[in-house]
Design a protein around this nucleic acid. Structure first.
Lengths: 226, 226, 226, 226
DNA sequence: CATGAATGAGTCTTCATTCAT
DNA sequence: AATGAATGAAGACTCATTCAT
């Protein structure tokens, strides 16, 4: 029942001295990270409604009280977890764009493909994202964080679509950058959701091909050779 | 803060003999429906983790014990709620296709647009779907139901895409029916998610336009005139 | 170690149908009273810092959850307990004055002696009062309630002292009513405290004699014959 | 909201060699004193039930562990605090008597007035005393200490009253020394309690006048000229 | 069917105490 | 001595479920 592909290396944080391991006197930042990762795993496995502070602590091989010591309350642990995932996600697509060269089409494609990066696109993380989505309307703190993440991502995507169009990429049916971006964003969100229900080992390849197909459909001239 | 657009009329259920009024015999089904609608509203408002049987009962203006009387346990109430939403959703898109005439393109478009039907596409229901998605991996019963719903919907969509292609609709880049269907399905799922975070009154019009734009991009010949 | 003299009959409350006993479906008011009396006993025995909601419930032969059901929180149980004792105390001295006839001196003496009435002057209740006093500065709700109770009692006492003086009772050293009342009030408060530490069965007789002696000292003409 | 009159200088303790400064040898006693004063302040502010070892340490600007290091357990810290206050109180009235000359009436008055000495009569200390009183019945250690303090104080007071009577002070109504002492002791206890609830800056003057008035009432010949 | 008090197991949270550094 | 993270037992509070009326 356990996911096979979840234990990807967490993103590096400056204050961590790699090479020491998690001994009893691990630094504050290391402990927080450790507990957040346990939280992600527990939510994916038991759902948000089945999340127990004791389960998080147990998975991190710590006493129950440590969660409250480091995060004060369960609610703040969840907020911190959402922030952690948001930041991780943001870094992922920003990094992808930065490494994609100068061509608008390449940058756009890199941003889309970042959603399928093994760092952020694990079944565990997808499950957690949707758990948060399901509670978003009930928790203002969640809603605000999710909306902000979405806004930033959307703005960047609109910019790249506009750049592609301006560079002569052309759009099918004279589609505007705004509409193209909305659709492309929805596309990757939907692909994530599909992965949530896919049986067996997670396979990101079909998703990548769907993205390529739709990029080619929307911007025929820019992506025809792909 | 309350949603404005939620109190759509519930779908008719066969076991209800409307010609006889709500006598004792019908009461059972009516009560169940009433409680399920309360459950949907409560989940949307408080999240799945905040769902209380007492809250459901209170919203339905019934005593707490009645929920257990009608559904035995909370878990069974949730299963029934998911079934109710699934059936409602299935009826919606089936009905849309049936009323769309014989042309493959029209039928495909009708099926896509059904996802934005005010019956199933309310913010309350979207929130509930995502709440279920977030718990799906943790609850085999949920996972099975969601996967099955998805499979049936996907099969129909693939069939319609194939029909459009066969009818000479053409695809951008020679896209296969399977891939087109996956992408289009993901597109509407993503549009739903977007509506979850949209502020103010829910607006389905941009979503419809995005769907039209992407249909035209994917099947240029079939949807060029739109 | 158990107090011997504590189970005095509680003051009658209108909604109680006496003669039925505390069966399982006792009325809301009866349950609240029962739990408050348990709270008083538990505080006296274990101190305010040793008060456990489970102990209160156990003494009342109820499940732990009932305390929260009837009082929502421990803090509100304590507030209700303080209100109950305050009201009981107020009724006690008011009743004593009302039954003392018209003579100011007799009324004054009755009010003083009410503090030694077996209804309110039990070791259990004295202990509880001091437990509340000790926390008063820390809890605004307590402070307000205690201060108000004190103010009402003080005002009545000043009035009676003034009446005695006016009636020619005379005071030692021309003491003003205000000062006499303050001192007499302090006297009974101090007598209570003394009872808290007295060993063995509580004995109110010395306290009564001290009150009589001081009344005679302060108002020689009014109380000389006593 | 903080008390204004609390930071009186603590009483000198014999084991401290003031001529040598606070070297390592003295440190132990200094730390204990520091922690006890913090305990008094914390009890006054949060009540005995709200007392946390971490709060005590924090106020003393020390690490939590230091409290256990110096007092082993919370219970022993409380015992030490009670002993500290008891000793402080005893020294206060003993010193007052010693400095009052030879006349019995003067010595009696000095002993009474010592209860209003700014050293022992601060709102903070009064609150702490009552916190201890409230728990006394629950904690044998407290009860014993309080009873002993009371006994010693009472014995001294009876002696002084007897001396005043013997010296021809006379009593109102031929009151016996024992009764006079009980009443006078109760009077000051009650005055303390009144100060606990007085709003604004603590004012000891009315209490002093009440004491003088009652002394004059009880011992007319000895205190008539006051 | 309906009510809602009662139960009690399950969780979160607090906090005295320990202990490695 | 001093620090403060870590532990874990204790207790407040929640809430699904039961059941007498």
């Amino acid at each position: 029942m356990r996911d096979e592909d979840e234990d990807v290396a967490p993103l590096p944080i400056s204050s961590e001295r790699s090479g020491r391991g998690l001994d009893r006197t691990a630094s504050r930042e290391v402990r927080r990270r450790q507990l957040i990762e346990s939280t992600v795993a527990e939510i994916a496995e038991n759902g948000l409604s089945g999340l127990k502070i004791s389960g998080v602590a147990q998975r991190a091989k710590l006493a129950t009280g440590m969660v409250n010591f480091h995060f004060v309350s369960k609610a703040q642990l969840l907020d911190a977890t959402l922030d952690y995932l948001s930041e991780e996600y943001r870094l992922c697509w920003r990094h992808a764009i930065d490494n994609a060269g100068a061509a608008p089409a390449a940058r756009l494609r890199a941003m889309m493909m970042a959603d399928l990066d093994p760092q952020v696109c694990t079944r565990r993380r997808i499950a957690v994202w949707h758990a948060f989505y399901g509670e978003a309307r009930a928790r203002p703190a969640f809603l605000a964080r999710c909306a902000q993440r979405e806004a930033e991502h959307h703005a960047e995507l609109v910019g790249l679509c506009a750049a592609v169009i301006e560079a002569g990429g052309g759009t099918a049916m004279e589609m505007a950058a705004e509409r193209a971006a909305s659709g492309l964003s929805a596309l990757t969100d939907g692909i994530w959701l599909g992965l949530l229900f896919s049986p067996g080992r997670i396979d990101r390849e079909p998703g990548r091909q769907t993205i390529d197909s739709f990029l080619a459909a929307v911007f025929p001239r820019a992506f025809s050779g792909k």
